[in-house]
Simulated assay, not measured.
Amino acid sequence: MSDGTTTLMTYSINGNSQDYITGLGHANDIALMSNGGNYYMYVVTMATTGASLVKLQYVGTTYTEVGSYTITYGGAEKAMSGVKIIEKTASDADFLFKLGTSYYKGTLGLTAPSGTIAVTNIFNLDVADAPVDGATVSGIDTWASQGIGYSDGLLYHIVTNDNVSIVLVYQSVLDFYDDPQSPAPTLASDPTLSFRVTSSTYSALFEIEGVGVASGTLWFGANRATTSGGANHDCVCTFNGYVAS
Rank of each mutant, 00 (worst) to 15 (best):
K88C: 11
V159G: 13
D179P: 14
T198S: 11
G37L: 12
V132L: 04
G134Y: 13
N38L: 01
S68N: 14
N163K: 08
S194R: 02
S68E: 10
M33G: 00
M46V: 02
G230P: 09
W143R: 06
S2C: 08
C237F: 07
T64W: 15
I13W: 11
S81P: 00
S200D: 09
G25D: 00
G106H: 11
T186W: 10
Y11E: 01
I158F: 13
Y58I: 14
N121L: 07
P131I: 04
E65I: 15
A90P: 04
G15E: 03
N240C: 13
Q171S: 04
D133N: 14
L99R: 01
F95D: 00
D162R: 01
Q57S: 02
I140D: 12
D94H: 15
V44S: 02
N223L: 11
V119D: 11
F206D: 10
G147Y: 01
T192W: 02
V197F: 07
T5C: 11
A144H: 11
K105Y: 09
S215G: 10
P185H: 03
A188S: 15
T201I: 15
T61C: 13
I30V: 08
A184K: 15
G15T: 06
D152T: 06
S151L: 04
F95H: 01
T201W: 10
F97Y: 04
T64S: 15
I117M: 14
L205K: 01
G23P: 02
G115H: 12
Q181Y: 06
I86F: 15
S199D: 02
V173F: 06
W143V: 13
M33L: 09
A112F: 05
G36L: 03
N121S: 03
E65T: 15
A225Q: 11
P191Q: 00
M46P: 00
R196V: 09
L56N: 05
T6G: 14
H26D: 00
A231T: 09
N232C: 10
V43P: 03
D19L: 06
T5E: 11
T6S: 14
T10M: 12
D3Y: 13
T201L: 14
